[in-house]
């Protein structure tokens, strides 16, 4: 399991820039940032090197930040990589709330982040399909 920093954000000009500035000033390195939004508000999801510290820093700066447990899997960076993962979950009837991916700069592999209803069952399903799960310690310092 991997810890994702989730932040509730109003859709006001410059708010996202403020958020990234706060993390940057604290020396926190983001691996991935994904925004899901409506016309009024958004949810920012962040994978970074020290998630707990990031949540604390954001809290202190007046952002409503929290930690969410998500699954991370490593797939070869080629067409159809994410589809294989989703198929594996689909076949077991596991719903994916949302998914996004980013590419590791060092290697050629992509990391898929998955938020599922039932993480334990999803884990087993992915392992059976031979898909490698990534731990938090593979992506960031466990803090």
């Amino acid at each position: 399991m991997v810890e994702q920093v989730s932040v509730f954000l109003e859709n006001t000009a410059g708010r996202l820039a403020q958020l990234t500035r706060v993390l940057g000033d604290a020396g926190i390195n983001m691996r991935a940032l994904m925004v899901a939004d409506t016309s009024e508000f958004g949810v920012v999801r962040i994978i970074c090197d020290t998630p707990r510290r990031a949540a604390e820093v954001l809290d202190r700066a007046g952002f409503g930040a929290s930690l969410t447990e998500v699954l991370a899997v490593e797939v070869p960076d080629r067409p159809g990589g994410l589809a294989d993962v989703l198929d594996a979950l689909q076949s077991e009837g596991i719903n994916v709330e949302y998914a996004y991916c980013f590419v590791e700069p060092s290697g050629g592999n992509a990391v898929d982040i998955l938020r599922v209803e039932d993480p334990q069952r999803a884990r087993l399903a992915l392992e059976r399909a031979g898909i490698r799960l990534v731990d938090g310690s593979d992506l960031y310092q466990v803090d």
Binding site: F8, F41, V43, R45, L67
Partner: peptide
């Protein structure tokens, strides 16, 4: 105000 102690990571839940 959304409650600070509740984790929000989904737009659907907020809606």
């Amino acid at each position: 105000e959304v409650a600070p102690e509740i984790a929000f990571d989904e737009v659907k839940a907020l809606e």
